[in-house]
Design a protein around this nucleic acid. Sequence first.
DNA 1: AAAAAAC
Length: 643
Amino acid sequence: MMKSSILRHASVCRVAALGARRVQVAPRASATVRAFSKPTFSATASLRQLSPAIRFYSSEAAAPAPTEETQELVTKFADLRSLGVHQRLVSAITQGMKYENMTPVQSMTINSGLSGKDIVAQAKTGTGKTLAFLVPVIQRILEQQPELAYSNGRKTASCDDIRAIILSPTRELAEQIGMEAKKLVCETGVVVQTAVGGTQKNMMLQRTRREGCHILVATPGRLNDLLSDPSSGIDAPKLAALCLDEADRMLDVGFDDELQQILRFLPNRRDVPRQTLLFSATIPKDVVGLARKYIDPQNFEFVQTVRGDEVPTHEKVPQFIVPCKGFENIYPTLLELIQREVARTRSNPDVLPFKAVVFLPTTASVQMSGALFNKLSRSDREMPHVISIHSKLTQRERTHAADDFRRAKSAILFSSDVTARGMDFPNVSHVIQIHSPPDREQYIHRLGRTGRADKEGQGWLLVADVELSNARRSLPGLPIQRNTDLACASVDATAPDTGAAIPSQFEQIKSVAKDMRHDLLQNAYLAYLGGAMKGLSRQPLIDAINDQAIHGWGLPEPPAIPLKTARNLGNVRGIRVETREERSRDQDGFRGGSPGGGRRDSRGGRDGFERRDRRPRDSFEKIGESAWEDRRPRDNNRRRATF
DNA sequence: AAAAAAC
């Protein structure tokens, strides 16, 4: 066993040493694996089975001298000219956006993407993936239609001649990508449009009919809506590129149906050659088979810039977990952390000002805690501005919140997972996750809102003791350290008043919660009973949220829940069923009807209940799958948690 | 009763 590992490793190193040469092993397959760093054991098997043309690139300081091909890799944007990238595209980057050097990720992926092959790229968060897929896509359009390099090429643009579609899992991310794309094409005749839900469709259509569209950046629902409506005029018969940003999320079951629908409106790849680009910081095992519907399994490149056994987060972002005694300790601990970090960073020119994203598990908890900390901040000059964002806001409010936070020097954004992926808020100093994240991938993406573009940052994870074993199970192989410095985390706030010192933050939270709209507390309480607290069984969860309601929020008794909900919970202790008066009051009140109106789409329904089901494995094609499986960072998932 | 994503 040991021996064979060594042998296999040796063979990989030999391949690596050959470096640049294309090793045509099997005539059948020509998929290329580009490992951006030293190949690992696990790469070996995949290379054997895939039998591709193999090219290794090495970027690490400790790596051997660059191979011919590494030297060939263009690393300055200006040098993209030598690869035939159009001057006007290059100039938009170097003159307009003032970028000179590519990040290693951009270098790898742009160089690969320009080949026209399908690309699957995995790279750490905050390393400039957007530019990495936009540049090849725009260049491809300019090659197909050279007159589009000039502004008067715009005149020929029409809304039924879309050449590239970029899909994003959230509206804000689509808007952000659209902005970036517009900057890149500003010297050319290429036209970019954005299509996302929650905005006025007719306005978008009028503009698109008037200006035309070559690159459409969209969320799946709105794109499907546009394509399925023949009267929209939107069409893509000559589509040359399809890009899925946050590819693993896009390939997840929640988007699957919609994506299949969309594919039906796009030309067949056999008739119209199309480059597909899948980008994400996380490429877990189970999306691998799904990707095969989109990429050409015989001819794609896997550009992996995270080593197989490497942690896919930034080493320069320290990460801490704070185990809190109960749920009631979490908000006081959050407040203590904010106060401490605000004080530490204030008037220290060597560190970023305090600018934090606080991630919460449900929209209701974002609404509640956002309102709570907003009140605190209004009565405390030291506390930064508090902003909230989640999908139950109107799109106007969402956009405003995102812009507000983007521009802020110091602020706290209370957020659901709408902003977890891809959002580029500059200079975020802290990412604070409240409760165990839904999974390891989401932890990584949330953390990726800080430490972007080589800036510093730190990650905090506040969980209750009852969640700790679940967190350990779901977050293996990440450099998370246990932190016990915060006094609020460990005190017992449920004990009868013994005169023992309870930190002031508990009273601060309570005094604000006392004046809050009761429905905010009630909805946050109720939402905990859904599936967000994965891994916590029913009775311990109810005990925990009751302690939070009484000892954290200072309520005299747990919020009442509807009879139907209580019935579904079965035989549990400690819940309070609402009386008839309470029910009628609630119906007149706010519960269920958020001010901006929630999403009430027909796709929704019980959607969340099925979400965790994966497609059957036998729907996977076998060809090439081993390559994917072996290249994912499987070792991390075997390694234990560090806290 | 649980992120998100169309009207």
